[in-house]
Design a protein around this nucleic acid. Structure first.
Lengths: 153, 153
DNA sequence: CGAAATGGGACCCCGGTGGTACTGTTTGGC
DNA sequence: GCCAAACAGTACCACCGGGGTCCCATTTCG
């Protein structure tokens, strides 16, 4: 697996579509739903959450809707994931210590923590404005270079 | 989230512990369970799966048990994940095309696929022998360098 | 004041994950 | 040849979280 939830996926899609318009522009949930092809209640739920987390500004009442709270090149994929899914971690003990019995004696724990941090940092460097591009055709978004722990077998 | 399952975590733990011994050595499920602190049925279930997937050799009967099928520096973390969880992908559409309605028109799809590949490749370069080290204290296991798509804002 | 919009819930269904148990089948040793 | 040790396969259950929908309160423009 190693998956993000569908809702997070939807969230990134919704934000990406808004990122294609001027930042100040206000989008209703209905419009966002239509544009993304998502059912309205779903889109609404996600937009609400994104507003709660500060990634969107919400405007109530008639003529209301949602607008980006931050420029799309300053919102990272990691930020959206954390907004919709909570703390980031490949393993549970990466962010939620104390739940695992073997924790103190677990030989792989610290390495998982490092990996989590590395992946999070990588996703943190991908702005929404990149994700919005249909097919960049350009260089890869990421290059991952392992620098194997040296000094041992 | 972006988590691996607990069972995968257990699997990596079990394999890492076996990796600390000579490759040819045979370990019974009971011993592996005791060493890892896992309940026997759980350890047994995971070891069976790892054997089915070819990462372990199994030896039946009295004096039987499991032994590594490959040298621990040639088994990657990604290989274990794929053995226990199936195809790798951050989003569903990354490996299971055709399930998502918006697929053809989804502007973020191809980028997710790239990210998935990048993460998988990174985890593919981390051998079990690294994970087994309690606290390498050395350089990071991974360095992820984003090479932002060039040629645009 | 009413319609259009968000805010905040409650609510249900389903599948997957974690975990256990049971019943074979193989194999070594006495 | 028989028994015990060990894996193989599989069925089974319980729980939790995610996906998804709906309802009602609240705000605000006209």
């Amino acid at each position: 697996m190693i998956r993000i939830t569908r809702q997070t996926d939807y969230g990134i899609l919704l934000l990406s579509q808004m990122a294609a318009h001027p930042v100040a522009e206000v989008h209703t949930a209905k419009d966002a739903a239509r544009q993304s092809g998502l059912p309205l209640p779903m889109a609404s739920k996600i937009l609400k959450a994104l507003a709660r987390e500060g990634l969107l500004h919400s405007h109530r009442g008639v003529k209301g809707g949602y607008s980006l709270a931050v420029a799309p090149d300053r919102i990272s994929v990691a930020a959206v994931i954390q907004a919709l899914e909570g703390p980031f971690g490949i393993t549970e003990c990466s962010y939620n210590p104390g739940r695992c019995e073997q924790e103190s004696s677990c030989p792989v724990r610290t390495n998982w923590q490092r990996i989590s941090v590395a992946v999070r940092d990588a996703l943190d460097r991908i702005p929404l404005s990149e994700m919005a591009l249909p097919r960049p055709n350009g260089p890869d978004l990421l290059t991952l270079i392992p620098t194997q722990a040296q000094g041992h077998a």
